[in-house]
Amino acid sequence: MQVIKIQGTDDTPAVTLDVNKSNPHLEISGRSLPEDVVAFYDPILEWLDDYAEEPLKKTIFNFKLEYFNTASSKLILDILLKLEDMYDDGKDVLARWHFPDDDEDMEEAGEEYADIVEIPFEQVSYSID
């Protein structure tokens, strides 16, 4: 599989999609308010389409966002819907939603996504010092 590694900026998230290593890593983190949300998220969604053809035994996708705008929220849902397709296809899938322990809004955003998509969904809090 192709590896996607995008450095985060102050308006675009960091993205790692790497399943070639012994410890595969799928993660999106940081801030998301890209100028063109579709252009930013399209390669990620396409990667997931390819990956879904031959996924690992277990797919864990990490979301560790500090902030995302409403335009990005639709595209984040699109990622989750790709995971849901895989899950419906009988694949072992887990979405792991990380949120700062003092950020109720981000925690609630995770709960809402968990309500919308029907896949195993885990909420993990972390502290920022």
Partner: peptide, 9 residues
Amino acid sequence: LTPKGGAGL
């Protein structure tokens, strides 16, 4: 999403 990237949210 609208062509301009509006989500209606």
